[in-house]
């Protein structure tokens, strides 16, 4: 029974990791870029929400809206400053370092907004309940559903709309898409906005489940997102979702069996092994192959 309880807890947490992983996979899968400032954007959105909360007085729903808007804005800012100028093929490292610089900036702004180490973060109140012998937290169940719905919406957007088709064409082969006239103006901007909205959702859900924010949240969420993406397969959207769920399961089980302090080590060890043995992760083998073939092509 404990096993089952732990697994369910893991899946609940994993669903939010899946959203973090999706944000990274969107950006990497389509633009081959890593946004190190991702976690900082989340922290900024949350800090902004807490800062504005007494002024607006909208309660938990206010936090929800402001967090998402704040993260999306920060994400768009990062794209304009760090990624749009470095869209050439060799710009990946430069863009990554630029985004690191903005990470520092957003971190500092967040700590100016929230001078204390810890701030309470109010969640949407949902009653908890027992399902047979299994304890289910109401808010986590709600988050699980929200995560599933947003993944579904993203899927519909990418696979059932014309914009989605163009985005996927660009992801497959930027040059060909360009030649065919399938150029999406502001593609990077749109991708970063989408990633920001997903990230904002994840930030709200994680923070309201924890009940507080600390300045470490930025680094933490960047790590979780990157790791979820890598386990699932770099750049694969489906992979990121599965990777997030696996990460949640591994963490809770490792925490339950080995204790909290070994939890992170197990995750890092797992990711390191995945990279060495199967760099494409669970679902990204095709992407890994095409990328490495492209590198070797004369």
């Amino acid at each position: 029974m404990d096993m089952l309880q732990t697994s369910i807890d893991g899946l609940m947490i994993g669903s939010t990791y899946a959203l973090l992983g999706l944000s990274f996979a969107l950006v990497f899968g389509i633009m081959r870029r890593i946004n190190l400032a991702f976690g900082a954007c989340l922290l900024f959105g949350a800090s902004l929400a807490i800062y504005l909360e007494p002024i607006l007085g909208w309660g938990a729903w206010g936090l929800f809206v402001v967090t998402i808007v704040g993260v999306a804005l920060a994400s768009a800012y990062v794209e304009r400053l760090c990624f749009a100028p470095h869209s050439k093929r060799h710009g990946a490292v430069t863009a990554m370092v630029a985004s690191f610089a903005v990470w520092m900036q957003l971190d500092e702004i967040s700590s100016q907004l929230l001078p204390q180490r810890t701030h309470a973060f109010q969640g949407i109140e949902v009653p908890n309940f027992w399902w047979g012998e299994i304890f289910v937290r109401g808010d986590q169940l709600l988050h699980f559903v929200i995560a599933l719905v947003s993944i579904l919406v993203l899927y519909l957007l990418l696979y059932k709309t014309r914009l989605g088709l163009l985005i996927r064409a660009t992801a497959d082969s930027p040059d060909t898409a360009h030649l065919l006239g399938a150029r999406v103006p502001w593609l990077g901007f749109i991708i970063f906005l989408l990633a920001g909205i997903l990230g904002g959702l994840a930030a709200f859900m994680i923070l309201s489940a924890d009940g507080y924010v600390t300045p470490l949240f930025g680094l933490w969420s960047t790590f979780k997102g990157l790791i979820a993406m890598i386990i699932g397969g770099v750049g694969s959207l489906m992979g990121a979702v599965i990777g997030g769920l696996i990460l949640g399961l591994v963490e809770t089980h490792a925490g339950a069996v080995l204790g909290a302090e070994f939890r992170d080590m197990v995750t890092f060890g797992l990711v390191f092994l995945v990279l060495i043995i199967r760099p494409g992760g669970l679902m990204g083998v095709k992407i890994y192959r095409t990328d490495s073939l492209a590198q070797e092509r004369v």
Binding site: L81, P85, H86, A101, Q105, E108, I109
Partner: peptide
């Protein structure tokens, strides 16, 4: 960090 971060990103452009 606000200054340095912005400066670096701007410089790299």
């Amino acid at each position: 960090m606000i200054i340095f971060g912005g400066l670096v990103a701007f410089l790299l452009v």
